[in-house]
Nucleic acid binder design. Structure first.
Length: 276
DNA sequence: TACCAGGTAAAAA
DNA sequence: TTTTTACATGGT
């Protein structure tokens, strides 16, 4: 099945993160395709020669979830027009034409993934998360479905620390899985309310909540000001290399309202693939 | 070999 | 109240 997204769209650029930080068995890049479980089936996505994305199997029922995963809802035209008024961002957007951020479909996967990434490199986080997925997830073809909440809830802290989690992160992960919070219901709440609810959980601070807004809910105004990568990007692109404080990053984010999420993604990818 | 890497909360001052 | 410290692993 050929899935079309608004042009321009660059599938390989948009899925760069799944190749940069090591093998992720949940969103697996292999042989030029991205594999992932949708609706309990292994789905392969690849850039189509004619543009768009080829999706196999081609069931109609997968188009909605796959489109959402590929960030179809982002308003790239509006963003490009907005960015043109900022010479720096405008240049970045021009050089990353067709970048459309991916949205992690599963709220638990998003939050646990962020917990693993707290404080350590994304390479280390990916390796640790891979062991969690291979231990508690479910193999579907060559990929894994991320562990279900009840599967994690039943795990012991010792089982999780054996995978390389710190004692604290194991406790955060189990507390999240065992909590009463309805993670799907968060989608109905405004940004600030989502952050308030999530940061009430142990181990979920503002950074983790911001990335949940950005990469799970796809909220246009999400801007993880505390993110080290974003701080480095702001430093490189807006402060001539001088270190950016969190306050400076937040202040610079103001100028990107109402496209902060896209601006954050473009600046981060620009730092990785364009250098600087 | 150290040291740093897309934080967070608890302890110490 | 604000500042400092512990945390676990992977890459360089």
């Amino acid at each position: 099945m050929l899935l079309r997204l608004p042009e321009p769209y660059d599938f390989d650029l948009s899925t760069e993160r799944f190749r940069t930080f090591g093998r992720d068995p949940v969103s697996l890049w292999e042989d030029g395709r991205l594999y992932r479980v949708f609706d309990d089936r292994e789905v392969a996505m690849a850039a189509a020669a004619t543009g768009g994305v080829s999706v196999e199997p081609g069931d109609r029922g997968l188009t909605g979830p796959v489109r959402r995963f590929l960030g179809a809802a982002f308003d790239l035209d509006g963003f490009a027009a907005f960015a043109a008024s900022d010479p720096v961002l405008g240049d970045v957007v021009g050089r990353l034409r067709g970048l459309r951020p991916v949205l992690i479909p599963d709220p638990l996967e998003m939050l646990v993934g962020s917990i693993t990434a707290q404080q350590v490199s994304l390479h280390a986080a990916t390796a640790i998360r891979r062991r969690l997925v291979e231990r508690f997830g479910r193999p579907v073809g060559r990929v894994y479905a991320f562990p279900r909440r009840d599967e994690l809830a039943r795990a012991s802290a010792d089982e999780v620390t054996a995978l390389g989690f710190s004692r604290r992160k194991a406790e955060y992960t189990l507390a999240l899985a065992r909590s009463e919070l309805d993670l799907d219901a968060l989608a109905a709440l405004p940004d600030e309310e989502v952050k308030r609810v999530l940061t009430a959980l142990p181990g979920i601070g503002e950074w983790t909540a911001d990335w949940f807004l950005a990469r799970h809910l796809g909220r246009p105004e999400a801007w993880p000001a505390g993110d080290l990568g974003l701080r480095k990007a702001v430093s490189a692109f807006y402060l001539d290399g001088r270190d950016a404080t969190i306050e400076e990053v937040r202040a610079i984010g103001e100028r990107f309202s109402t496209f902060r999420n896209l601006a954050a993604h473009y600046l981060l990818v620009a730092l990785r693939v364009l250098g600087r």
